[in-house]
Computed example of a mutant assay.
Amino acid sequence: MRQILLAMLMLIGSAETAMAQGEPLIPLHEKPRALPEISFADSEGATVSLRNWKGKLVLLNIWATWCVPCREEMPTLDKVQKELGSDSFEVVALSIDRAGIKVVEEFYREINIRNLRVFVDDSGAAARDLKVFGLPATLLIDTKGQELGRLIGATEWDSPEMISFIKSTISQQMKGGQK
């Protein structure tokens, strides 16, 4: 447990250092990467996949209600969705809670999440297929469904710098370019 906490602190520290040095707030790949087909359930229990968001820039956040850093960053993701959510952009918060949809809905009510839709993969297959080895994990996915970059660890998604970065990426994606 101690090693996990130390690793998480190192990730958070490296994100803060990157921001201070003017590096991208989400580590970007040299070129977009293909993603495996993944599927998960929406709040009604219907199966959805990343194809449902083709044509939109997606911030896919993989999290769980039992993950303390995840719980702390959820309100900031909710604010980003409220401010930037549109036909061009969406925050997709994908819970990997094995207890399913009800526990996520209860958590959303508990901390007043109003702008994020409920998505759950209670099998954990999506995280495995995406090679996510720590929580929270956030993938920036372009309009073609390719991964532009990923951030492992919590961050302040609603910071002015992050909002500006996401707006710039949305604009670039809508013009057909890659970030």
Rank of each mutant, 00 (worst) to 15 (best):
S95P: 07
D122T: 04
E110Q: 13
I96M: 12
V48A: 09
T47C: 11
V132P: 04
V104D: 02
W53G: 06
I111M: 10
E44W: 10
L116P: 04
P24D: 02
L57G: 06
I4Q: 10
H29V: 07
I111E: 05
T65V: 10
Q3I: 00
L60W: 06
E73Y: 10
T155V: 11
L135E: 04
L11E: 04
L11P: 01
E110M: 09
I166M: 08
R150L: 12
I170K: 06
D142L: 08
A15R: 09
E83V: 13
E23L: 14
K179N: 07
C67D: 05
D78W: 12
G100S: 06
I4T: 07
G55Q: 10
S159I: 02
L57R: 05
K175R: 14
E73F: 09
K54Q: 14
E30A: 13
E110K: 12
E106S: 15
M74K: 07
G45I: 05
S95Q: 03
V58P: 04
P27G: 05
P36T: 00
A127D: 03
T65S: 12
S168C: 08
R98G: 06
V132D: 02
Q3C: 06
I62H: 01
S43R: 13
D122F: 00
D87W: 02
R114V: 00
R51W: 12
P136S: 08
R150D: 03
K82T: 00
G22D: 04
E37R: 13
Y108T: 11
S86I: 04
T65R: 08
D78E: 04
D122P: 15
S95F: 04
R114L: 09
K179G: 10
M8E: 08
K54T: 12
Q178F: 09
R114F: 14
R33Y: 00
E83C: 09
Q3T: 03
I4H: 03
S88G: 03
F40E: 03
R128E: 15
A15Y: 05
T138C: 07
N52T: 14
A18G: 00
D78A: 06
D42H: 10
E156F: 14
I170E: 03
S168K: 15
S88E: 14
R71K: 15
A93D: 03
A46N: 15
W63F: 06
W53E: 09
M8K: 11
S39K: 14
Q172M: 13
V92R: 02
K175V: 00
E30D: 15
D121C: 11
A154H: 01
D129C: 10
L151G: 01
V118H: 09
V48G: 01
T143E: 15
I152F: 01
M174K: 15
M19K: 14
S88N: 13
P36A: 08
A7T: 03
L139R: 01
M174N: 12
L116S: 04
E23T: 01
M74P: 00
R150G: 06
E44R: 11
G177K: 15
S164C: 07
I113C: 09
Q21N: 12
V92E: 03
M162N: 04
E83N: 12
V120Q: 03
A125C: 12
S168H: 14
D78H: 11
R2V: 09
M1H: 14
A127Q: 01
A18L: 05
E16R: 13
P24E: 00
E72K: 15
K102F: 08
P75D: 11
I12L: 15
Q81N: 10
L59Y: 03
D97K: 06
